[in-house]
Design a protein around this nucleic acid. Structure first.
Lengths: 206, 206
DNA sequence: GTGCATCTTTGCATACCATGCAACTTATGT
DNA sequence: ACATAAGTTGCATGGTATGCAAAGATGCAC
């Protein structure tokens, strides 16, 4: 059996597939090792060995060691961009983002175990959680651009704020959920956060 | 003349004052060098030399090189905590944060030039902007705790979300302002962002 | 299927980041 | 002035990250 068709990844060539496989192997090895030993104690050498490539190759795929713990899917940005531009015209921008992110997350959550480990690793190393924002900053900028395009407000403050707040929402949702996995599904937390945002973060009922 | 009383820092001992001075010198050197040469090209050695201490001493003050570009004031957290707890009881939490942050920023903005350079450095190196969130994550957690205490909602989702969104607001405000310094004062941008948040991020008028 | 062009991987050299430790210098309290 | 505590420094060490050139795959044309 061939393990083809990873994730919308019928990408024709053998090269493409191999690259995807290597990247995925590195990311997965990183998360598993971090979940077991703590992210700080996992060296690039260990990750590379677990994935069966050289250290130098690791750095061909990730700019920094931390990126391996953080980057989930390379072309999530493109998908979300499309989702934002395709959403029904009347929908409030915050709702558009809620929808696009929820879809993306539902996708990622398919790989139950890895998603859970991922959340736990990030929860255990807050600095990685922050880095998550950084790594997805490109995605954030891309999102902002898509929103700007949708609204015709290019270069404005609003699209960037919206994208950044959405990123923050995901970050806080993951962190909170990973500490309360028993009590609620991730998507429930996520939707609660967005509801709070849409309501203007009102004081909760005492 | 003695250069005493830096910033609420009449801290009695000579040791205290020297430490504050060294820390400030390192942070300032870092920002000035980064503004001139780009943050990525500034080595710890250069920063240390400019501040007149050894490399090893640099790392006695900052955990990582990037922290020197990011950490503004060590005890801002404590001040904000106090501000949050002292705010009038009826005020909505988001307004409490707006006030506490605005006061803190107004303070930092006293040093015009440094504040401007700081914003420019962060704008030029987005990864530092993200790290800013990370470095202030301790502050964020502290803020969250103060809010939680104020609301009696310890460990809940809401305080953490509020603190995180507030941090994001500062980040986006700085970034946007540093790119549009001519058009508006920083505090104007900041207040506009908070108004958007309080209104639930509604679609802007087309 | 042979052979050339292209892309990827790899090892090596190099520079920088970060930490522990021990020796040394400088404040502080009495 | 003295003993103690605190801060600074150099050295050694190990991990992170990049450029470069050689070797190994893959894709493509013929």
């Amino acid at each position: 059996m061939q393990l083809m068709s990873e994730r919308g990844a019928a990408g024709g060539g053998l090269r493409e597939r191999k690259k995807r496989a290597t990247r995925a192997a590195l990311a997965e090895a990183a998360v598993r090792l971090a979940a077991e030993h703590g992210a700080e104690k996992v060296t690039v050498e260990a990750i590379s060995a677990a994935a069966g490539v050289s250290v130098r190759t690791f750095f061909n795929y990730f700019e920094t060691r931390d990126d391996a713990f953080v980057v989930i899917d390379a072309d999530a940005g493109a998908r979300m961009r499309a989702a934002v531009l395709d959403a029904p015209p009347g929908l409030p921008p915050l709702e558009v983002l809620r929808g696009a992110l929820a879809a993306e997350i539902a996708e990622a959550e398919q790989q139950h175990e890895l998603w859970r480990l991922h959340a736990e690793v990030l929860h255990a190393s807050p600095h990685l959680l922050a880095r998550g924002v950084g790594a997805h900053m490109a995605a954030e900028a891309e999102l902002a651009e898509a929103i700007a395009e949708r609204l015709g407000d290019t270069g404005g403050l609003y699209p960037r704020l919206l994208a950044a707040v959405a990123g923050t929402a995901v970050r806080i949702s993951m962190d909170h959920w990973s500490a309360h996995q028993e009590e609620a599904a991730f998507l429930d937390v996520f939707h609660e956060v967005f509801s709070l945002l849409a309501a203007g973060l009102p004081a909760p009922p005492a």
